[in-house]
Design a protein around this nucleic acid. Structure first.
Lengths: 208, 208
DNA sequence: AGGAGCTGTGACCGATCGTTCTCCCTCTTA
DNA sequence: TAAGAGGGAGAACGATCGGTCACAGCTCCT
């Protein structure tokens, strides 16, 4: 899930500009890192595991990424592309158009997610909690991607005509995060429970 | 916080029964492990850091705990003693007596917690997310301690006369977990925001 | 033909991981 | 006073960590 191999074949490129930033090897490394990091966390996954799964040479990895941290950063970036934008946001917008319905639909999407057998949780939360040091670039990057999710919520809240969209988005995000942790604990019905809570907030903010 | 050094001096014990399970060295190891694990997580803290901080010999640690995993297990047990029981539960019960007020007071207690400069988050959530493998004993232990927190909530919900205390406790716990993650993200007002959500649930479940 | 650029191979680095071992010292209690 | 247990110190174990090195092979462009 969320690791669709649309792979974008970029081989046979134009003139000497064979940019290393989009080589086939780099893509395979990133794909392997995505699977391993999202499922097992950062610290638990070593470079060896990544090169083995990607079938790439050790030096090829270090030619494409100067360090493990930079690879993790690239993973987080891809996580936003695939999970936040390509999945959550897109799925919500596909299901309905009314902004309030879209907000509530988040938990319908989560419900399906929580029931997948290989539920991996939210990588941004995982990295944020795994890397304690608030000065660490990985910690900060995760925090930034979480802020971006909140921007999406705030946009929907604004469209819905909520009085204080920023505050609303923060509360909504607390609900989302709570449900994700509950799902990680094993509660398959966490999304439904949380949607019920969310509907209470909607009812208060928007008499309809 | 929550690491009060009440230390329980157990030296000079009775007859040969100098149980290794409560030696002074063991206590110092556990105290060091508590500080380090709760603040930095499990994987980030090595044995070396623990023996250095505790000032104990390497072999003394392994005479008291057969492995790092067992030390982590002992840490989690102490975390429940100090955090769940000795702090959260006690603090809530000290502040008020009405069960509904006690449920809401959780977020008053959280508010103070979130504002401490060395906020460490919930170790049970941290370990649960850090150790992905659901079969791992550390993962399972963390899950169990989270269930116990829910038991406390359920007790209060029952006393409050909620229709479905188990479901109520799960929703309340989702709110708590969401607020803790938000606090880890840096939101100092996460407890207030969450208490507002919580009050909506209370209002629906108990017309008063 | 030749050079540039990316990849593969495999040895290798120092550091750190969790864990074990041996030797000795210091208490306590019988 | 003797026995015995707990602790301290430090070397060492094999494994793994992230990261580097030299060298050879391939494919593409000019």
């Amino acid at each position: 899930m969320h690791n669709g191999s649309e792979a974008v074949n970029l081989v046979t490129q134009t003139a000497g500009a064979r940019s290393p930033a989009s080589s086939e090897a780099r893509e395979r490394i990133l794909a392997a890192a995505y699977d391993l990091f999202s499922r097992n966390g950062i610290r638990a996954v070593g470079i060896d595991a990544i090169i083995e799964r990607s079938g790439v040479a050790r030096m090829t990895l270090y030619r494409n990424f100067t360090s493990k941290d930079e690879l993790v950063l690239a993973f987080l970036e891809r996580r936003e592309e695939r999970w936040t934008n390509g999945w959550l946001q897109q799925e919500v917008e596909r299901r309905t158009v009314d902004p309030v319905d879209r907000l509530l639909a988040i938990f319908d999407v989560f419900d399906e997610w929580f029931r997948t057998d290989d539920f991996e949780g939210c990588s941004f939360i995982n990295v944020l909690l795994e890397i304690t040091d608030t000065g660490n670039s990985l910690h900060q990057a995760s925090a930034t991607y979480l802020v971006r999710i909140r921007s999406f919520l705030e946009r929907l809240a604004t469209e819905a005509g909520v009085a204080d969209p920023a505050a609303f988005a923060k509360q909504w995000h607390i609900l989302m995060k709570g449900s994700i942790v509950a799902a990680a604990e094993g509660d398959q019905d966490a999304a439904t429970r949380t949607q019920d809570l969310a509907s209470l907030l909607v009812a208060r903010e928007l008499k309809r």
